[in-house]
Design a protein around this nucleic acid. Structure first.
Lengths: 184, 184
DNA sequence: AATAATCGTATATTATATTGTACAAAATAA
DNA sequence: TTATTTTGTACAATATAATATACGATTATT
């Protein structure tokens, strides 16, 4: 048996054990037969890509997690020590939590948008993506010609090579977590 | 036929064409039969993980590249539609906002930790980093032998190849944004 | 302690992945 | 133009993936 079905088996067993799931339970979650799951875990069978997909979906993980091979400081950021980036619009502030770095190729901000404030972002270079999570309040997000009402707890991912505008039409401040990912 | 073998077929054909390779040549490079390669490209067959591995190796690409899905221009995620991942600890829930993808190499969760709850995460593979932002409440984060008090608005970045424990000792729920970044 | 439920594994059966080969159409060489 | 080579597809044979079911061992319940 090739090495990769063995690796898949180890990864799967490890995940299953960490979640304290029986093969029966996993069969329920994934729609794959218990006997097949056992074979896969033991590296006795070479699963098809659809089967791995079913397993990954049932476990709410990605297929990549199942095929991943092994390859091991702590940074604590205090909000009170962050110096916000402000713009001409008084009601928009961006607190840089994690700066861009060559390894991750993304940066993370906490952003606040006061009631009535509207903030326009210029298009980034092609390939840049933004992930916006509204952790408090609500936001209207205009991306190109479309407008999206983003409620508390909701999240949006979009290509940031389009102009986009953050608008807070509510009467409470909006708090966002923003991840900006740059292409390699 | 499931959608993923169809996706694999499209990706493979696209790569092969971009390199101006015939099926015969690809069969030579990969050690997979020409007939099978044709079936895979047409989405007529559901390849095993070993077969994908052989194809990827022959082409000097990763398996992930073969299974990658295109991302839409804008993805809006509604919190109310998310199915949380729960574990044996009753008070810990992880809502998957953005799943892992071959391009970004990270996944994003909203996590809730109820008062008094303690959640242990097994060490990830080496090279995996976690970014944890506390957007509501407070958290004690134990990483290896160290403990960190993380207040609202604070954030932590750490290598997730160490065991780590989320503990909510306060009397309010803690809400976190968690980014898990996997090495390329 | 006895009984029931659960667990992972073994086995036989069915479904399908994978190969080798043949073929017709298209492309290339003479 | 004709002959040859290359290409992707069709098909049958072989190998193996995936399932349903049964089983013995272990755990949980009565």
């Amino acid at each position: 048996m090739d090495h990769i079905p063995i690796k898949v088996g180890k990864n799967l067993k490890s995940i299953r054990k960490s979640r304290d799931l029986s093969l029966d339970k996993l069969a329920e979650l994934t729609g794959v037969s218990k006997a097949m799951l056992a074979q896969v875990e033991r590296g006795d069978s070479n699963p098809t890509i659809s089967l791995l997909w079913k397993i990954a979906n049932g476990l709410r993980i990605s297929v990549t997690t199942l095929i991943a091979e092994e390859t091991p400081q702590v940074t604590l950021v205090r909000f009170g020590e962050l110096e916000p980036i402000t713009e001409e619009e008084e009601g928009y502030k961006a607190y840089p939590l994690f700066p861009f770095d060559a390894k991750t190729h993304f940066e993370v901000y906490t952003v606040t948008v006061e009631p009535g404030c509207s903030h326009q972002s210029e298009p980034h270079q092609e390939g840049v993506e933004e992930f916006v999570i509204v952790t408090q309040g609500a936001l209207d997000l205009q991306i190109g010609d479309e407008a999206y009402a983003v409620e508390q707890g909701d999240a949006v991912r979009f290509n940031a090579d389009q102009g986009h505008i953050y608008v807070n039409r509510s009467d409470r401040p909006a708090w966002l977590q923003v991840i900006i990912r740059y292409p390699f």
